[in-house]
Design a protein around this nucleic acid. Structure first.
Length: 413
RNA sequence: GAGGGUGUAGCUCAGUAGGCAGAGCACGAGGUUGUGGCCCUCGGGGUCGCGGGUUCAAGUCCCGUCAUCCUCCCCA
């Protein structure tokens, strides 16, 4: 078998992120991390591979994620494992496994990294994609819901992107159950008018029918019972309070009674930050409360909530990146000045100036051209003197000592 | 899983009716023997995504396949 190395390419739905894109990635992530820090969230670094049943039991056996999108394999020890398709499940598992509940108080955690879902790639969707998210364990107060949503709102504002926030309440387990029953009864009356997928949804995931884009389905669900009518008194109170807190925090939101989320574990608060600027995959961040999940996965009853943001989708919306430090490129006029040049570069770096030594040898003309390609803001020609060139204006100044040169540079930067 | 668009130089793309593989930009050298961007000259670069078929002859027509983009489904 002949193998042509030149033809190896990245596999479908995976990507190399480099250059400007890598900067955007870093910018999005760093913006979140800074805000997390001020909200006193602590980082948790989670495994990429988990026992497959973790996702079956949390995300939901019936969901598409579990049914058809997981990267599953058997390891050499015969374990059925999966590349994580989302972060909350692992985070909950860790919370229980590390017995964080025993430490008292409550826990605010954040994570970041790759997730894997075997789907057809399209705009803003990859098979390996990246999320950054946060979870709060051990708090039932609506204050937590409000602060979490407001925190995401803050980050998106810092990133200067256009979005809208939709919120809804799915109610507690009981109200969700009685609502679902009512909805199913209603939908059954119109079953043969619904689209094919919605007909299946009646059994599998009736709430999702509310989200259907098919016009006839929309028409039918318009008159359907609304979840808000089925909320328990407690859930209603919570939802009212959430809205009050959000207003107090100057967070603009839209109430969307049709908003349901795809994952099984949500209770009460759900929210979605949506944009219309990146095509069909408009959700950039989403989350909600999941008060039963910790217990479901074998931990003590623990109220919890969280969110996750799609880094690639946010990258599509980020327009301008923060300004970078100006670049000073040091060019030895002949190889005789190589040593002086590398020493000068080092000196500049040690005083926190960004410096590049011209590593490509050639005519002075070609070196200067390369310096231009590297987007140098300044060039220093090193000979028996130092000539500082401002690349934008083309003006040059001569210095006879490195000290004088550095003083002049400091003034300009 | 279903539907549609696109694969020709590093990049963006042209390639008419099947008849020698092209342009612009980028890259390299020179014009300017110590100075980038503008201009001029010259130059290096291609398994035309891959495999098969039709034909005297295929980038062009046919079949398959892979990749990519977009849409549905679903999700961040």
């Amino acid at each position: 078998m002949e193998v042509n190395l030149s033809k190896i390419q990245k596999i479908r739905g995976f990507q190399d992120i480099y250059g400007e894109e890598a900067k955007k990635y870093r910018y999005v992530v760093d913006t979140f991390r800074k805000v997390f820090e001020f909200y006193n969230f602590k980082e948790i670094i989670l495994p990429y591979v988990e026992d497959i049943s973790l996702f079956k039991r949390s995300v939901g056996e019936a969901t598409d994620i579990v049914q058809k999108e997981m990267y599953v394999f058997t390891d050499k020890g015969g374990r059925e494992v999966a590349l994580r398709p989302e972060g909350t499940a692992s985070c909950v598992r860790a919370y229980i496994e590390e017995k964080m509940y025993a430490e008292g108080g409550y826990h605010k955690l954040f994570y970041e990294g790759a997730m894997f879902r075997y789907e057809r790639p399209q705009a803003g969707r990859y098979r390996q994609f990246h999320q950054i998210g946060a979870e709060i364990f051990g708090v039932s107060s609506v204050l937590a819901d409000a602060e979490l949503i407001s925190m995401v709102d803050n980050v998106l504002k810092k990133l200067k992107i256009n979005y809208k926030l939709e919120i809804n309440s799915l109610g507690d387990f009981q109200s969700r159950k009685s609502y679902t029953q009512n909805l199913v009864n209603y939908l059954k009356k119109y079953e043969n008018q619904l689209c094919e997928t919605c007909q299946k949804r009646i059994e599998l995931n009736p709430l999702r029918v509310l989200d259907c884009k098919v016009p006839t389905c929309k028409e039918i669900t318009k008159e359907a019972p609304k979840i808000t009518e089925f909320l328990s008194e407690e859930s209603q109170k919570r939802f009212l309070q959430l809205k009050e807190y959000l207003k107090a925090l100057n967070v603009d939101f839209i109430e969307n009674p049709r908003l349901v989320r795809g994952l099984d574990y949500y209770t009460d608060t759900v929210f979605e930050f949506i944009t219309e600027e990146i095509g069909a995959q408009g959700t950039v961040a989403a989350g909600g409360r999941y008060d039963n999940l910790v217990e479901q996965l074998g931990g003590p009853p623990t109220p919890a909530l969280g969110f996750a943001a799609g880094i690639e989708r946010l990258m599509l919306l980020v327009k301008d990146l923060p300004k970078e430090k100006p670049l000073i490129t040091v060019i030895p006029i002949t190889p005789d000045y190589n040593i002086q040049s590398i020493q000068l570069s080092n000196k500049l770096r040690n005083i926190n100036l960004k410096s590049e030594t011209m590593l490509k040898e050639g005519s002075l003309k070609s070196m200067l051209k390369t310096a231009d390609k590297l987007k140098s803001d300044f060039v220093v020609f090193v000979s028996d003197k130092y000539e500082l060139k401002d690349m934008a204006s083309g003006q040059q100044e001569i210095f006879y000592t490195q000290e004088d040169l550095i003083e002049a540079l400091k003034d300009k930067i």
